[in-house]
Nucleic acid binder design. Sequence first.
DNA 1: TAGATTGTTAATCGATTAACAATC
DNA 2: TAGATTGTTAATCGATTAACAATC
Lengths: 256, 256
Amino acid sequence: MNKLNQREVQNLGFLLNFPFHWTGMQRRTSKRVWETRYVVKKMRIPEATVMRLAVYSRLLENLQKRDIVTTSSGDIAEGAGVSPAQVRKDLAYFGEFGTRGVGYNVEELCGHVRRILGLNQKWPSVLVGAGKLGSALALYEGFNIRGFHIVGVFDVDPNPIGNRFGSIKVLPMEHLERVIKKENVRIGIITVPAVAAQEVGERLVKAGVKAILNFSPHVINLPADIIVRNVDFSLHLEVLAFNLTFELTECEDVGV
Amino acid sequence: MNKLNQREVQNLGFLLNFPFHWTGMQRRTSKRVWETRYVVKKMRIPEATVMRLAVYSRLLENLQKRDIVTTSSGDIAEGAGVSPAQVRKDLAYFGEFGTRGVGYNVEELCGHVRRILGLNQKWPSVLVGAGKLGSALALYEGFNIRGFHIVGVFDVDPNPIGNRFGSIKVLPMEHLERVIKKENVRIGIITVPAVAAQEVGERLVKAGVKAILNFSPHVINLPADIIVRNVDFSLHLEVLAFNLTFELTECEDVGV
DNA sequence: TAGATTGTTAATCGATTAACAATC
DNA sequence: TAGATTGTTAATCGATTAACAATC
């Protein structure tokens, strides 16, 4: 590999269009000659940062609707319930979007955040499991608004087959692979009972799905390159219940 | 306050039944006399730990169903997709539940985890917003199974009023406060559109609700002692979308 | 005792925050 | 220039992990 200097490494990062950091390492090539190699590392973005960015994007959309032109890290922080430093840090992973002394242009920043999150494109998705929850999700407008179009709903049970959700109808599992290929689906949503979740997950991955939103209470084991999010509702209720019981025995610093 | 020694402070923590740590602080009371005060502090449990405990409880219930008597941190870790050290650490916040050299008794540990999470009691809850999502949630058995009983469904819209979900029917908002008081409800679930979320949240809190599961895409601002979890689905889809786009530009450490 | 597994410590890793220089 | 707000650094805070003594 060629030797690059700091400036060239930075430019490389910019060209490749990803958040990065570089480190210089000195190495002795002969008794008196030291060589400095620069290494570009892709920066790991904390998951919490991504979640917050999704919240910021909502706030920015609201500001846009209300025709507000300029905002600040303080405003955003207040709306999202975090600190202004946090907001600036989150954004700093991806670039410089503001003007010192002035703030951020709402429309511009909104566009940047949406681009970062990948919301400037359509995400065709499939949903497996047309039970109560699956049906509600298939009809949920919230997904469409943000670019997540459910292009196929599937079920093993012959009962719901043929039911319509808007323009799409429930299909038997045999068609799963065909639809995924045809529509270039990369996101799968699982709303089947716990026992079937693992099997469905594996089948989705085999058919080409790269990311899975798992609503079933079963944790799925899939290859490391597949992105899985477990979003079982009762998990959240349990965290609430824990906090409620735990608060009861709460005890401020007790000097004794 | 009385002066206690280390041992007494530890006992106090055990008596009050919470995870704690203590620290000794020395203070000069007169020119030559130093006094040591011990301070009990409630241990902060990481939210990630609570989420994982909820996952462990599901795995343990599965093992119980399959009549498996003994398990290990390794087994649990594999099922939950975390490290064995993580499992042991998570449990260690709350006590010693295993036997060295042997492992954990499934039934026993399951009981402990359920008690820690507060699942050994009933949690009457109300749901505001009887739209598509609200209806699906009202019918979702997953909640009942884990002790979360929806005792009231409410809506401002007169259309769904009177609809039945199992044994309960949709009531107008006027009855909200009455039901919350009568059933001693401490958990509220919000499935109203974004614009109404803040108002509904405030009304729930005023009526006595202590914890809120917010499915609307709007972040609610409530008093600090109220526990709020925002669980907008598309938030999760956006994290998936980010990871999918981000992966595309992924780049291993590049030596240059 | 040998093998296994827990509970706990210290080291490591990573995220948040306070503070401030840079800038409008 | 004075006031305001960003972008970035270093310090702090907190969570995870590797390793091992304790124990069956």
